[in-house]
Amino acid sequence: MRHLIDIMDLSVGEINDMIERAKDIIENPADYCEKCKGRKLATLFFEPSTRTRLSFEAAMYELGGNVLGFSEAQSSSAAKGESVADTIRTVGAYADIIAMRHPKEGAPVVAAAKSTVPVINAGDGGHNHPTQTLTDLLTISREKGRLNSMTVGLCGDLKFGRTVHSLIAAMSRYENVKFVLISPEELKIPEYLKQEILIKNNMTFVETGDLESAMPQLDILYMTRVQRERFFNEQDYLRLKDSYILTPDKLENAKADLSILHPLPRVNEISVAVDDDPRARYFEQVRNGKFIRMALILKLLEEAEQREEQ
């Protein structure tokens, strides 16, 4: 059974195909409105989420399918102590595909090992969030018309930010991509990611604490939130949370065709005054999330069907 646990489970070719399919869905929505008729998606959210859960549900509805599930662990048998493996086996009896978010890292690996239907990791703690990365890649592809030959600035929490880690890993497979890693000293990208992805793949990257001086060279600026839930120490969170706040004046030296992205939710790291700037693309990014999830659901269901036929 094919699952999506980590963005690196997908080849570059598969990602490119899904991006093309998502673009086709945007262009021709009527062609897809009954593709999943009679199929059910289970959204198992052991941790709260707005965008990811709703975009999965909207994606399935737009494909003509149905949705069942829960939006917090308290309303599931997990509250009674049921294991992930047992929950997954139970849900597999009712649904054709599962999107799961869990606060513990590696929970989707456990789920996939026991599931009889495809499992999509919709986020496991601070670990992986592959559908956000697919969303980011579709957005960059739509904005720039390519995924190679560009300078990508990643700003904020690069230490705990799972979306940042996955995006770096995914974009390291495209040619001539340069990364500018902008963060306070305490939230720099982990050493193992630097060694095992950036250095191993001979990527060009610079680390800096200065957003404004990095700005003029960027084609993409990927802002992130400093996440309270990733800190064990509240004092550290309070000290670091306002490290970078993007305001219109900081964009004065930016390229005219810069695209500003953010996985959302934001707190205050992008001033609302930036929202009206045509370079602010984070709400378009949200829309793209639904389309790439439609492409992903279709891909996994089609592969599961092919396997059944064999």
Binding site: H102, P103, K104, E105, G106, G126
Partner: peptide, 13 residues
């Protein structure tokens, strides 16, 4: 040893 790992809550894994 990762306190966020699924093995910390699912003892039989």
């Amino acid at each position: 040893k990762n306190p966020r790992c699924i093995t910390t809550v699912e003892q039989e894994l």
